[in-house]
Design a protein around this nucleic acid. Structure first.
Length: 505
RNA sequence: GUUCCCAUCGUCUAGCGGCCUAGGACACCUCCCUUUCACGGAGGAUACACGAGUUCAAAUCUCGUUGGGAACGCCA
């Protein structure tokens, strides 16, 4: 049995990176790529780098960069080098890690390619390119626009710049590369690209800003990235990148192209069909552990088929061999279930502190008493799938928000209901303390049963409505200990009035 | 259109030539638990896109067809 080397010649340790462009929120698809890079680096005692691809000056914002950083931190995908999560300063041996601050580096590489004839200055205007494109399209769909400047000497181009003042782009010369490029993809196996798949692509824009395919290669090389795990949409880019590696005579990292995350209609996940920003999920009360768990399961599988696990377990078990190559539909229903499982695995104290955050945010009232909080968590734990579900659950405990639901009407119209409520109210009034225990409630319930001569749902539904205003939901014996005598009286009075109002209406 | 990628239950997937009359999970249905709704438990229904090869043997390998997706920018 022969061991496959972990990385290509020229690399000494596993170094992966996630390189978002700060032009919006962190997308779950991106987060999943980040996760796999993080896991692979962790698993192999390597380094995980956060690089910022902000060469699109028009769209990159600081706001977005902060969001990316905080979302990554929230998920627990901690990086070893890159933008510091607190100070936002670049830290690590290969700083700076944002491309807008590495311009001189790209320029130097471009100059080298220019000098040895692997790239050229192109003075074509947008209009000229468009016109040319139209022209050749008629003859051959497959053809690429050919720049008349491809064969100019460097001196010629420099003279032209000087005299005309024109600002050219730098293009990579592909014409002479008539051959197939073979990529040994970690996930897809052998992928063959014909070199005529691409034309002379831009390296440097006319304003000197580098273009993605160029700075990506330069940075991956300079930062000694050993493994590039990225979404499948980048697969066609890889040809351009392979060409640059070859032209610079640089050692290639290993590439792995992960399948796409799709919408229900099997297209690339987009925000038009629901939330896709990590931040939205955080706000709705999804746990980072559940997010990671769920994202991992789109494309990766636990060796024992387990469905619920945390980041540590993933890190222990992660391997590229268990990554599959077909796209995965983002199933929000299963995400919710996954979250519920993680929620229930939490101890009551931790869960309470998370619930509290959501209640505070909405200004929902709760008791400061720790045992009350504990009891409330016990009562509501299995009723929640996401933390924000707590908002409704605890609002139901607020007297000022008490409301009788529409589906209560039927039970309130039953003949024995009036009697049940009367006995119930009487028992509350007679109760000697302000609060009730579970045992108190069970006694009271039995008394109502005997005195009102009712049982089954004729007993239970009216009682629940008198407590919570709804015929279904949390066990009444768990609800009553969360309430006061005053509160229960207030509620039963409202329900009685409601029935009276209905009768006379 | 061109190039590339992909193809197992509705969805996420296991499977890497015989263990597969295809396993698990979500969702769905039935029952149990439960004086409600849930949670939990036990069952059920549902899939190897199609066609040729290779082989004693194919969900697994090869080719083709079909279907889906992505990329074709001075976006990343």
């Amino acid at each position: 049995m022969s061991m496959q080397p972990l990385f290509n010649p020229g690399f000494t340790e596993v170094r992966t990176r996630f390189a978002p462009s700060p032009t919006g929120f962190l997308h779950v698809g991106g987060a999943r790529s980040a996760l796999f890079n993080f896991l692979f680096a962790q698993k192999n005692n390597g380094k995980f780098i956060l690089r910022i691809e902000d060469t699109d000056q028009a769209r990159s914002t600081d706001e977005s960069l902060k969001m990316m950083v905080s979302d990554m931190t929230w998920l627990g995908l901690n990086w070893n080098e890159g933008v510091d999560p607190v100070t936002l300063k670049d830290i690590g041996p290969y700083a700076p890690y944002r491309q807008s601050q590495r311009l001189d580096i790209y320029k130097k590489v471009a100059d080298e390619l220019l000098a040895n004839g692997k790239a050229f200055y192109c003075f074509m205007t947008d209009a000229e390119i468009d016109a040319e494109r139209e022209k050749i399209k008629v003859i051959n769909q497959n053809a690429h626009v050919e720049s008349p400047f491809a064969d100019w000497t460097l001196a010629q181009a420099e003279a032209e710049m000087k005299t005309s003042g024109k600002k050219p782009v730098v293009r990579f010369k592909t014409k002479h590369l008539r051959k197939d490029y073979i990529l040994h993809d970690l996930i897809r196996g052998e992928v063959k690209f014909p070199s005529d798949m691409v034309g002379d692509f831009v390296l440097l824009r006319s304003d000197g800003m580098p273009v993605y395919n160029f700075c990506c290669v330069v940075d991956d090389h300079m930062m000694k990235i050993s493994h590039v795990l990225r979404a499948e949409e980048h697969l066609p880019n890889t040809l351009r990148q392979l060409m640059i590696y070859e032209a610079m005579n640089w050692a290639q990292p290993q590439f792995g192209h992960i399948s796409l995350v799709l919408d229900e209609d099997r297209q690339k996940l987009s925000k038009r069909k629901g939330a896709v920003a990590c931040d939205n999920f955080r706000l709705e009360g999804y746990l980072p552990s559940a997010m990671n768990n769920f994202m991992a399961l789109m494309g990766w599988s636990h060796p024992e088929g387990k469905e619920i696990f945390d980041l540590d377990e993933m890190t222990q078990l992660f391997s590229l061999e268990r990554l599959n190559s077909s796209g995965a539909v983002f199933d929000r229903v299963k995400l919710k279930w996954t979250n519920a499982q993680h929620l229930r695995a939490l101890d009551d104290k931790t869960l309470w502190s998370m619930i509290k955050t959501h209640l505070d945010e909405k200004g929902i009232h709760y008791h400061s008493d720790v045992s009350w909080q504990q009891k409330s968590v016990e009562a509501f734990k299995v009723k929640m799938e996401v933390l924000s579900d707590a908002v409704t659950l605890y609002t139901n405990l607020d007297d000022s928000k008490f409301k009788i639901s529409d589906d209560s009407k039927e039970a309130l119209s039953w003949e024995p209901t009036k009697k049940v409520l009367a006995v119930w109210k009487n028992l509350i009034e007679k109760h000697s303390t302000e609060s009730f225990t579970e045992a108190d409630f069970i006694n009271m319930e039995n008394t109502v049963k005997a005195e009102a001569q009712v049982k089954g749902k004729n007993l239970f539904m009216p009682l629940r409505i008198a407590v919570i205003g709804q015929p279904h939901g949390t066990e009444v014996k768990l609800l009553v200990p969360l309430m006061t005598k005053k509160s229960l009286l207030h509620r039963v009075n409202l329900v009685e009035n409601y029935i009276l109002g209905n009768i006379h209406a």
